[in-house]
Design a protein around this nucleic acid. Structure first.
Lengths: 192, 192
DNA sequence: TCTTATCTCGACACCGATGTATAAGTTAAT
DNA sequence: ATTAACTTATACATCGGTGTCGAGATAAGA
């Protein structure tokens, strides 16, 4: 098992290229084939099997990697203080990431049956929900809808914005403002 | 081509059963196979090819049929008068339909390349957008976000509600109120 | 009842994707 | 420079899905 020599640099580079390519391919087509991914990585298909035993394993690796990166990106974000301001920061910072992740999850659902992965997905959303619950307790966010449902809306709106951006129906320059305005106003809307 | 005898009743029945089954199967799994659909229709796979030349043709037929039915269901809805009240009626009446349709469209995107179909899809959404635009003109709906984007939000929220309902995270009894409240409050929110 | 349309059954060719195997070439560690 | 690790090229087995075909069974129209 443990060989005398250490892993070669080009092998590590390839492994990385494959993960990058897979992330790109799978997020814009959940059904992307191993050949597609290999081509995008500048590698021959068989090479992928030198690093990942199966498509399933590759998808899982990509997903975990993306989760870790997202976590890192969002971890440094301050969610303390005024909940509405925190929400605004959160939205502006995370909506692109959330979307990539969401699309990747689409690919994973077809290829994976791993609850551990789903647990990983639940965690960041739980953080959003906690923020919303705090906003509700402190009176700056609406109480007529459940925090759970509002969290779902949060996610849906971020995802829609990303889709509109991709489709060219939303201008890059407007995007941040639009998505933040939308989410914040929905969560702070009057009880009617 | 035109045979002396008219089409047999059981053939029509089967054709119908196939369309029904396809609508069900494809809306909860866009990748459902011809075998799956045949099984659900109580028919053998080859029989489908007696009615539809290919998977593509079947998907198209299902889509058109669903569009027609949705149109019929929504056509009788009165969108005149107070735009906000009309929006409320529209949401409550259409969110389930919109979702089925949306899911079917997911199946179609993989199997079809037909712009005519996409045009059909655009029409009902255009009606929603027109209503929103009227609301904006008459001052009862927000103007700080474009009618186009608000239409997208409308669709996204309806779709989310349906997904939550399916997942059991939203109670059947609450659903109508929740989705209507959400959409209406987002579209009438103050400009901040 | 007779006739014809339609359904079933089983088999088949085809395609694209996954995963394995082997030999020969290339690259990096030591 | 030597050696082990890695990549390539190529071929193959397998699997599931699509679409086709022909023969026999069955149901409906006249």
């Amino acid at each position: 098992m443990t060989s005398s020599r250490s892993t070669r640099r080009d092998a590590l580079r390839n492994r990385d290229a494959i993960l990058d390519a897979a992330a790109r391919c799978l997020s814009d087509d959940p059904g992307a084939s191993m050949s597609d991914i290999a081509k995008a990585a500048g590698v021959v298909r068989v090479t992928i099997y030198g690093h990942f035993a199966s498509r399933e394993e590759l998808v899982e690796a990509v997903l975990i990697r993306t989760i870790d990166r997202s976590e890192a990106e969002l971890a440094e974000l301050d969610l303390e203080g005024d909940p509405v301001a925190a929400l605004d920061r959160l939205v502006r910072r995370s909506w692109r990431i959330v979307d990539t992740f969401h699309r990747l999850l689409g690919a994973a659902e077809e290829a994976l049956s791993n609850e551990r992965i789903m647990a990983h997905h639940a965690e960041p959303m739980a953080r959003v929900q906690a923020l919303i619950e705090r906003g509700q307790r402190e009176g700056s966010m609406r109480r007529d809808l459940s925090a759970e449902w509002l969290t779902t809306c949060f996610s849906a709106l971020l995802h829609s914005a990303a889709a509109e951006l991709r489709a060219g129906r939303l201008a890059e320059a407007d995007a941040d403002r639009v998505v933040a305005t939308t989410v914040v106003s929905l969560l702070t809307a009057p009880a009617g």
